[in-house]
Design a protein around this nucleic acid. Structure first.
Length: 332
DNA sequence: ATGGTTTTTACTGCGTC
DNA sequence: GACGCGGTAAAAACCAT
């Protein structure tokens, strides 16, 4: 199902999705926020590169050790520190029994600190779930990291109590997917989660509200590449050829045009965005073919599109009609 | 739970191959 | 006759409250 093409993230917005003002990056705090409404777009944008210098470059940063800071570990990676059980120090000298006792005590504290609270434990399992599901869905690191950040914040604000870690982890992943604009829907995520769809939906709602995630509604365009990439999948009827116009990019461009038109005319309210995406492709195909009745492609009929986006042909028809109406209006 | 809206289901007729 | 398409009424699903 997954193709590399369909999971690319969108370019970052320069303007606030909330109020439209120019965004200002705050280097010190490592976040990009809107000066007008205070919406934080990118939080914790730190340098996660290796914290050591490669050579004896005297101008380089002072060398620090340990693995790079990452949000994908419940303790951001610093828990990798180990206190050796060897009875010798770094130079191979014996350690006194007094010091050994101290070290053993430190070791114990350290271990406790790693998973001290149940909160930390929750974050640990939550994030490992996010990683598991993310990998199953073929998501890139950014999406998983964003999901982890959301999950961590949820935990810090005591939103996990009373809900299952699984639920909130899945919901955080879905929230991250929505923020990135990936064309994945809850049913697809539920397939790799251990949680029912309804719970994901609810958890996502809670996250959205409490953390003020400010997710914009789905853009129908986001679905186009995914649908198009499935148009000529091998599992589709082999007797069906390709479309007769030049290439698929023409189809996508036309479909985008139709969707833009629909947006200008405020047709989206209440309707499933994916329906517009499917219908726009259908309409684009019709328009591009024009009067050319003969075509070797029947993959783009209402039924086939409906199958691809899991909607009925009736829905395709309705959206198609709405799209064509504004299109005809526009072009006289 | 409820009520408004959208989507689906099931059925229709029409034109084309 | 099979197929694609358009329309419709009623049922079902969905969603905000």
């Amino acid at each position: 199902m997954s193709s590399s093409q369909s999971f690319q993230s969108l370019p970052h917005e320069q303007n606030c999705p909330e109020c439209g003002n120019q965004l200002s990056p705050d280097e010190k705090r490592g976040e990009t926020s809107c000066p007008s409404c205070g919406l934080v777009i990118e939080d914790g944008k730190l340098d996660h590169g290796p914290e050591w210098r490669y050579s004896n470059d005297p101008d380089g940063p002072s060398p620090r050790t340990g693995s790079p800071n990452t949000k994908l570990r419940h303790d951001r990676g610093i828990g990798n520190t180990q206190i050796s059980t060897e009875h010798t120090d770094a130079n191979g000298n014996q350690i006194s029994s007094k010091k050994r006792r101290k070290l053993s005590r430190l070791r114990r504290y350290h271990k406790q600190a790693q998973t001290r609270s149940t909160k930390e434990q929750n974050i640990r399992t939550g994030i490992s779930e996010i990683l598991r599901m993310g990998s199953a869905l073929g998501l890139n690191k950014n999406v998983k990291e964003t999901a982890s950040v959301i999950f961590r914040r949820a935990s810090q604000q005591d939103m996990i109590a009373g809900r299952s870690v699984e639920t909130m982890a899945t919901s955080a992943l879905y929230a991250s997917i929505r923020l990135t604009g990936l064309p994945l829907q809850i049913p697809e995520i539920a397939q790799v989660s251990r949680v029912e769809e309804e719970r994901i939906k609810h958890g996502y709602k809670v996250l959205n509200k409490e953390l003020k995630l400010n997710v914009s509604p789905r853009a129908p365009e986001d679905y186009l590449p995914k649908i198009i990439s499935n148009l000529n999948e091998p599992e589709m009827d082999q007797t069906n050829g390709k479309a007769s116009y030049a290439d698929e990019s023409a189809l996508e461009i036309k479909a985008r045009e139709l969707i833009d038109l629909a947006r200008e005319n405020e047709l989206f309210s209440g309707k499933r965005p994916i329906g517009f995406a499917g219908a726009a492709l259908y309409a684009a195909d019709q328009l591009l073919l024009g009067d050319e009745k003969v075509r070797d492609c029947i993959t783009l009929n209402q039924h086939a599109i409906g199958e691809l986006i899991d909607k009925s042909p009736v829905t395709i028809r309705s959206r198609y009609q709405e799209l064509i109406d504004v299109y005809r209006e526009e072009s006289g």
